[in-house]
Amino acid sequence: MPEHEFELYLSLLSKFLKLNPQQREEIAEELRGHLEMRLEDLAKEGHSREEAIRLALDEMGDAGELAQHFSTIAKSRRRKLIMRCTLGTAVAFAFGLVLFTAFWNEPGRPHEVLHSMAQEGAAGVSETLPQVQNERVAKLAEKTKVFKSEELKKWDAILDEKFELDLLGLSLQEVLNQMATLGEFQIVIHNSVDEMLGDLEGYELHESLSGLSLRQSLRIILWKQQLTYAPRDGVLYILTMEEALRNRDFYEIQMYDCRDFIVASQNANDEPLERNRIRGEAEQLSEVIQMLVGSQDRWEIAGGQGTIQAMGGILIVKQTSDYHHEVEEFLDQLRQPYLAAQAKLAAE
């Protein structure tokens, strides 16, 4: 029989646990079992029900402290896993690259076929070669194709614009005002910032930033105070990272088409990949993103709100706008070695 007091305790504990819902539920389930058994035994020893509940909970100790213990253990476990995976990914990546280059340089392989086709082309089949090459070049796009809302596209254009900013001696508030004027948008300081830092007039800056986009400048000046930005409802919010981590309202969904990348990185022959293989690779890509992009705790695997779902090579990512930008940059960087190999091939 579930005791109301136990459920209260367990839900309080769950709230403090910085873990994903499944891990939280497992811990609650284990402790619930313990509390119930303890209650039965204490009742058998002659304690009244109230007394038994109190004793059982006393033995469990402070919910916040216990949650802290569990979270720390899970965190150190995760750190080990991440270290292993990061190393594993790097090794696999390097290995893949070596294989890839080795493959393409070997005589008699596809580019050799292209060569022979070129010779044939000279002998009359002149249409074939450019077609084949173009098709191959078109296979891996320069940048990851991202599907995002019109609102966010508009913000991207604003934030990617470059300005000269002379911030020496200005307060954080003044700098933000200056940016809003230059970019012609409105900035709203979220309550969480007031609560953590008070008036932004009190924070003086000592940088001068030139040749940077508004986004890069924002990152630099906000990061030091543990702040970040998020466009919403037509204005740019400045909020604490803590708030960005827990407030669902600032999360957006964007889709990243990684199919061309998966095919290019997995398969030098350009044969159609099996659906299962694409799915597996996309899932692996999601894991790597969650481990390497931004701070871990923004992702659901580590108790945050951000998620990634892979659907047939398209990643559906729920994150805050600043992290979306990092995901996009990361995916674009991943293409670079393959693009280089492709360019080399096209040049031959």
């Binding site: 811990i27 284990e30 402790l31 313990h34 509390l35 303890r38 033995e59 469990m60 100790g61 402070d62 402290e65 216990l66 213990h69 569990f70 253990i73 899970a74 150190s76 476990r77």
Partner: peptide, 13 residues
């Protein structure tokens, strides 16, 4: 119990 369960989870980790 508040001491035992963190020990179990750590030993498992």
């Amino acid at each position: 119990a508040g001491t035992l369960y963190p020990i179990l989870h750590r030993l498992e980790a």
